[in-house]
């Protein structure tokens, strides 16, 4: 189960996002809020570790990780795929 709370926990550990997490709506653009290239890779690594998935190259773009909602959808796509 990919809950927004778990995603927020992961964002709290991200240097660029840590102070902002409680103010974030699910559609807020994380890149506009200060997520940079380094921070986004750290976020992807933390998500891969937490949800035991590997994002294929086709999902490693800005849109897949641009908001809490798109992160939930991106991770769900992979976890559902793995269960099927």
């Amino acid at each position: 189960m990919v809950s927004d709370e778990v995603i927020k926990d992961i964002l709290r550990q991200n240097e660029a996002m840590s102070g902002l997490v409680d103010t974030l709506g699910e559609n807020d653009d994380l890149f506009e809020k200060g997520l940079d290239s380094f921070g986004s890779v750290q976020l992807m690594l933390a998500l891969e570790e937490r949800f035991e998935v590997e994002f294929p190259d086709s999902l490693l773009n800005r849109r897949s990780f641009s908001s809490i909602r798109t992160i939930r959808e991106t991770v769900t796509k992979l976890t559902v795929g793995a269960a099927a």
Partner: peptide
């Protein structure tokens, strides 16, 4: 340094005529 960071998540497996 920027590339080094990106390579931490890139999966690779490129082909000659694409990617």
């Amino acid at each position: 340094s920027n590339t080094a960071n990106l390579l931490l998540v890139q999966k690779g497996g490129g082909q000659l005529l694409s990617a």
